[in-house]
Nucleic acid binder design. Sequence first.
DNA 1: CGCCCAATCTTGACGCTGTCAAGTTTCGTG
DNA 2: CACGAAACTTGACAGCGTCAAGATTGGGCG
Lengths: 199, 199
Amino acid sequence: MTKTPPRKPHHHGNLRAALIQSGLEILAESGLSRLTLRACAARVGVSHSAPAHHFGGLPGLLTAIAGRGFEIFADTMKAARRAADPAPRAQVIAICRGYMDFAEAHPALFTLMFNTPARLAPNDAFIAAADAAYDVLAETCAPLAPVTDDPRSTEMMVWSLVHGLASLLQGGRFKPESDRMDMPDFEAILPPLPLRDAP
Amino acid sequence: MTKTPPRKPHHHGNLRAALIQSGLEILAESGLSRLTLRACAARVGVSHSAPAHHFGGLPGLLTAIAGRGFEIFADTMKAARRAADPAPRAQVIAICRGYMDFAEAHPALFTLMFNTPARLAPNDAFIAAADAAYDVLAETCAPLAPVTDDPRSTEMMVWSLVHGLASLLQGGRFKPESDRMDMPDFEAILPPLPLRDAP
DNA sequence: CGCCCAATCTTGACGCTGTCAAGTTTCGTG
DNA sequence: CACGAAACTTGACAGCGTCAAGATTGGGCG
């Protein structure tokens, strides 16, 4: 065992982080279908099987990239919340705005994070990152009264609503038959929800 | 041109439908990752490139299977609606119940239909099937007053909510930290929504 | 100071995939 | 009956993930 655990690896300077970064770039530039072990390796300039060594295989690499995505995701929601009116309801709306912004800005990453569970191999770090993102939403919903008996019902409702809207918009599933329906906004839907300040 | 368009093809009896059926079976048995042109061909007993000839390639086959999925999806929702109380609100709840049931009964197919847009190549038949499924939900929501100025706001809200809930449950994204939270039900969330009969 | 071992990364191979070009079989029609 | 088109097969190719084996590097210990 070395006493300087991941300080200065042998050949490449922190290849692991570089591979995750290259994966995020490939995702943004070319989409999920091009996110491959060999493409990540080539972009960083290492051999085709170096990524598998660090991440155990493709699912491991995708999981690491998705975990980094949840960090960015949580940061996006926090930034939106920070910039908003501090009233509880406005804070929730701001979180949802951040949610939608992230999905729109990083569609392929969003898909990897939420829509490809079979391709991921969740580990402790991934679960921690995903939970941290959920906590941002949950703590923002906390000041609002639950809409049912379940104390978690408000966060579940808000999360389901915003996640479903983001997913369906991204999938292009909303029919553009109506004239002015090109970009429905969650703010047209969220305000009428039965969200109340806790007594 | 033959005058009997798709009646009795040359070698195999309607290979196209057989390939779609085999795809549905593979999806149910082995998941999306095993749904491949060659696996579908082998299950039906034709050569490895017969599917590509009929569907133009993998995206074409996946689109045809997803389109069939939307037909089953619409049927599931209609059956649930038919069996429910005819009051408008109960009808909407029944639709959502059918929605959740479909997602739970056919998780891989549900993922293919909604969560892998990059792997599909929508054509007229696919769009028609997806729109028909949407129409089931839209017409059920019609008797309810819109929650905002937009007449489509109710269906968008209901659809986003139930789709988000189904997706997140399927992805296992809800933290099971709470004790009794193993199977949250949309009925705990939908009733408090501001759905009202139209005046 | 020098060795040694473990971690890092490379090389080469394997089977599987989708795609394509070319050939073969089959059937409807003129 | 023969021709042509449609349906399907055959064979090949590059790219993919994975694995085994080898080369390279660098830090800790004698």
